[in-house]
Computed example of a mutant assay.
Amino acid sequence: MKKVILKEFKQEKLNQLTAIYGNDEAESLYHWLVEDVLGITKIDHHLKSETEFADEKLKDFEQKFDQLLKQVPIQHILGYAEFFGENFHVNSDVLIPRPETEELIEWIIADFHKADEIKILDIGTGSGCIPIILSKHLPKAKVFSLDISQEALSIAKHNALMLDTTVTFYQQNILKANQLPTEVDVIVSNPPYVRNLEKAEMQNNVLDNEPHLALFVKDNDPLLFYQKIAELAFKEKNKPMIYFEINQYLAKETEEMLREIGFSQIGLKKDFRGNDRFMKVQK
Rank of each mutant, 00 (worst) to 15 (best):
L47N: 11
K7Q: 13
D66Q: 14
T101Q: 00
Q171E: 15
N204C: 14
F53P: 06
K176I: 15
K3V: 09
G22R: 07
L146E: 06
D36F: 12
E253R: 03
P97T: 13
A233C: 11
H31W: 04
V94F: 00
D44P: 02
N209S: 11
D185T: 06
A160W: 01
I77T: 04
K280Y: 05
L223E: 00
Y249R: 14
T41M: 14
E86G: 11
D60I: 13
E25K: 10
I109S: 03
V184H: 00
I74A: 01
N190H: 09
Q248R: 14
K10T: 08
D44I: 08
L224V: 15
A19I: 12
K142S: 03
L250M: 06
Q179M: 05
T165G: 11
S135I: 02
I266E: 00
I109E: 03
L232A: 03
E106M: 10
H89S: 13
N23L: 12
T254F: 07
Y243I: 02
I130D: 02
D116R: 15
L121G: 02
E253F: 03
L215R: 10
I246G: 02
A141G: 05
F225S: 02
K3N: 10
V217N: 09
F244A: 01
P97L: 02
K136R: 06
M257V: 11
L33H: 00
L6M: 07
V206W: 04
L95P: 04
A160H: 05
L161P: 15
I229A: 01
Q171C: 09
K13C: 08
N159P: 10
E103G: 05
H46G: 13
D219F: 10
E151M: 13
E245F: 05
L197W: 12
N247V: 00
T41E: 10
K64D: 05
V217G: 04
S189V: 04
A152P: 01
L223N: 06
L17M: 08
F88Y: 03
Q265S: 14
